[in-house]
Amino acid sequence: MSTTDPHDAPVATPDVVLCPEGPMLLRGRHVLEDADGRRHETTRPVTAVCRCGKSQSAPWCDGTHKLLPPKVRP
């Protein structure tokens, strides 16, 4: 039932996942510097980083990308 054969060479879980029309997921602990030079530290196992530029919680995603027309989503 599993897609991956456990005997195949292991494929690492990605540390960074680009979500279609949405944020970038970051796994693990990272320090992110925003465009103004401010640093932000991730605090959860997986963090969503805004890619649409419209989040009110920048640099983190707050779901605002869903209010954008699909054409202008990331």
Partner: peptide, 19 residues
């Protein structure tokens, strides 16, 4: 929940249900 669920929704829909 604003920030947590912005990550959880992607994990749940695309990665968990996707897999």
């Amino acid at each position: 929940h604003v920030e947590a669920d912005a990550a959880h929704e992607q994990l749940a829909a695309r990665i968990i249900c996707g897999a």
